[in-house]
Simulated assay, not measured.
Amino acid sequence: MPNSLNPLELIARRWQPSAALVRRAALATVVMAVIIVVTGGAVRLSQSGLGCSTWPKCTPDSLTPTAAMGINGLIEFSNRMLTYVLCVVVGVFIIAARARHPRRRSLTRLGWTQFWLVMSNAVVGGITVLTGLNPYIVSSHFLAATALLTVAVLSWRRACEGDDAPRDVVARPVRQLAWLLVGATAALTVIGTVVTGAGPHAGDARKVHRIPLDWQEITQLHVDFVYIVVGLSVALWFTLRAVKAPAAPRRLVLELFACLGLQGVIGYVQYFMGLPEIVIGFHMLGSSLVWIWVLRLCLSLRDRGPLEDSGVPAPADGHEAPEPQPASALSR
């Protein structure tokens, strides 16, 4: 009965988005996830981490920053408001994925995963403020944002491919090498958060607790993992050429080289210039791009068939339309 339908079902019965629109909505979540990472870094680098002294309000007596709080309060509050923009973008993706017929439950599940990651990271952000920028909580805040970026990239990929059973386009050892690259890049990201927690940019001008480690020694470990990631990328490129892999993954490796090269230049510039804030901001952007391209490269090594933009309208009775059968099934 119509009265028993939830709002998403009602929308699905009246609106049929194209496959291209769903892809664009998925890409928008990737872009917003990167923006959240970069603007979160801007809060720390501008010493605005405690620009709002409490959470969920900005001050005990005000939801918004006051004039006395200056630019730091405005920066911190603006970053909080971006969470609502992110929720809207994720919501559009969920609605578009749900309204699409035939229904692709994998896409809606990924959309809801993004939503709950946003909600949980908002809570972690509040704990960050309430604990006075505890470096371990700050690190978990960044890693949660990276998890959101990961799911957003997966959503984008799923929105661009079909629903056939995954088929490897290279031999299993090649895929294992790609997963090793993903693991090394993830370790590089985690070590980067330790550098942040031990380094000089604490997020506030006042004395803030830091991770009790020599940040220069941790930075050297971070650099060592950069060499590991570069080495694995080079090995994967030669391997893909040797096995005559499809053009897409080989192109993605070259694009990854460009990201790594740019990130390496930024890393050395920030080190020899004494860690200027603006350069560190670009370094955070570069780390997001490297992670995106590593994930895209790994996902490109399997195929799930083409995505068919069938344009099948939602049935009038509210039931799901039958999903199209793969060509292999139709030929039996």
Rank of each mutant, 00 (worst) to 15 (best):
F142H: 11
V89Q: 08
N134L: 01
T59S: 05
R80E: 05
P56E: 01
P135M: 00
Q114W: 14
L50W: 06
R100T: 05
A122G: 13
I127G: 00
I94Q: 00
A97V: 03
A68Y: 09
S139N: 13
G51P: 12
I94R: 02
A99C: 08
E76G: 02
L74P: 11
A147L: 14
L107Y: 12
I137S: 02
T66N: 08
C52A: 08
R100S: 13
G49V: 01
C52Y: 03
V118I: 12
L107W: 10
L50K: 06
A97F: 06
Y84P: 15
N79V: 01
H101C: 15
Y136E: 12
T59I: 05
L82A: 04
L143R: 08
A145C: 10
R103Q: 15
V123G: 03
G49D: 01
R80N: 07
S53T: 12
Q114F: 12
A147H: 08
G49S: 04
T113H: 15
I95K: 13
P102T: 11
S78Y: 03
L74T: 04
T83H: 04
M119L: 10
R100D: 15
T128P: 09
V88Y: 06
L149R: 02
I75E: 04
G111N: 09
R104M: 11
L50Q: 04
T59C: 04
L74H: 07
W112I: 12
L63S: 12
V88N: 04
R98A: 12
S62D: 11
G132S: 06
F142R: 10
S139T: 08
T54W: 02
V138G: 07
P56G: 01
K57W: 11
M81E: 00
L133H: 04
M69Y: 04
N79S: 06
G51Y: 13
K57H: 14
H141F: 10
L63M: 12
T54L: 00
Q47N: 12
M69A: 05
I94V: 14
R109A: 15
H141L: 08
A97L: 11
T64M: 11
A99W: 00
V90L: 06
A144G: 09
D61C: 06
P135K: 00
I137L: 09
W116A: 06
C87Q: 09
W116T: 10
Q47K: 13
Y136W: 14
I127C: 00
I75G: 04
K57P: 11
L86Y: 07
N134D: 14
L86K: 07
S139P: 13
L117E: 02
A67E: 07
G126S: 05
S62Y: 03
R80T: 02
T66V: 09
V85R: 00
I137E: 01
W112F: 15
G126C: 07
L117R: 05
L107D: 10
V90C: 01
A96Q: 10
V85L: 05
V92S: 07
K57R: 14
V89S: 01
S78Q: 01
F77L: 10
L110P: 05
E76P: 07
L117P: 02
V118A: 00
R98N: 15
L74W: 11
G51L: 10
R44W: 08
S62V: 03
G125P: 09
R109Y: 13
S120P: 02
G91M: 03
C58F: 03
S139G: 15
R98H: 11
S106T: 15
R109W: 14
L107N: 10
L63P: 15
